[in-house]
Amino acid sequence: MKLLTLNFLTCARKTCKSTAAAFPLHPKEAELEQVEMDMNPLFITNMLPRLEWEAMKTLTTELGLPNLPAEPPSAEELADESGEPTQTLKDLHTLLMETSIASGKLVCGNCEHEYAVKEGIANFLLPSHMV
């Protein structure tokens, strides 16, 4: 599952869901893979304000990926004068859309429950005693 997904996931337990500690989930023993994908500059540009930059910074650090800049790039940094995508946008595409967790675990920072990721698919079904 691509890294962008982690921006939209938290712990499935009701008691965790609205706590700040549950987001983002922390990758553990994560096996990464690069999956090539067509770049959609308009999508990246429009989606950027929805990105929790602090969370993405935490994730890249935890996954041992190159550090993100302290602040999210502005819209002007994503396209050059002729409207072509800049390297900044290309890098975001590579990080968010092409970098994927193939397997591992996602750990809740609040309750410490671990969700398994297998073949790129995370499983959020809770054992019945945890629902």
Binding site: M1, A12, S18, F124
Partner: peptide, 29 residues
């Protein structure tokens, strides 16, 4: 809820698919 269906659905890029229950969704409200 079905892992087998999620696996089929996961082939549709650029999106993402997870296994989850509608009553316990792993998303921020």
């Amino acid at each position: 809820r079905s892992h087998n269906l999620a696996e089929i659905a996961a082939q549709h890029q650029p999106h993402s698919v997870v296994v989850a229950d509608i009553l316990d969704l792993p998303h921020q409200p």
